[in-house]
Amino acid sequence: MENWVVMDICRRNNVTVTGRSDGPVVVLAHGFGCDQNMWRLIVPALTERYRVVLFDYVGSGGSELSAWSEDRYASLDGYAQDVVDVCDELDLERAVFVGHSVSAMIGVLAAQAAPERIGALVMVTPSPCYIDDDGYLGGFTAHDIDELLAALEANYLGWSSTMAPVIMGNPERPELGEELTNSFCATDPDIARVFARTTFLSDSRQDLKSVHVPTLVLECVQDVIAPREVGAFVHAAIPSSRLVSLDATGHCPQLSAPEATARAILDFLESL
């Protein structure tokens, strides 16, 4: 019975476990827009010493889309529950949770919900609130988020015809392999819309206070989604945190600067 449930959650969240089976556990969680393949360039740096757990949130990547419901996934708590479910099923204790973008905040919520499961946090380009607020600079207005939704919509027609061949054929990076995610970045448009709203309209600033575990905040010096002001805000709100600024551009340092990102994460892991 228990076995069956494990299988069920593992299939639901497309869980992959790799690396050193008796090593400390590192959970890698993707953000809005993509799936666990986001970590492909980082994983090899971790597997020698750590047990690495990868998964897709329900509604993303290779997850069971049938398990998705707007009710559950219209709030970050629904995604945090996915994290707790995976930790429970694998019976993880004091794992290091590495969350990218919105997943950094999802990790904060998961650590609140199941403190025994998560012993440390790595927040990659986090933002607790994307919308500008009185004295707080999140970088966006609510109108900007509507534009993003429009962009998602505009590319909807393209997913089937244009994106699919690009994703399938991968002549220049054979190391990425064929299994690479025919679904990478190609989410059901209705699900993507809900995830986008939840991600960009959430305000989790108050939740940062609940973090007491060792935390690494990783920011990029050039990131339109999570500007440096936000990195400083997160670092200031979590006394147990360390801030590392990567000399990288964009919102995805694990892709644009994989070596530096892996190095920063390993340094943090070794310090625990």
Binding site: C34, A151, I167, C185, D223, I225, H251, C252, L255
Partner: peptide
């Protein structure tokens, strides 16, 4: 936003 979350990673 779309560039950062979809285009650039892809």
């Amino acid at each position: 936003l779309y560039h950062e979350t979809h285009f650039a990673p892809l």
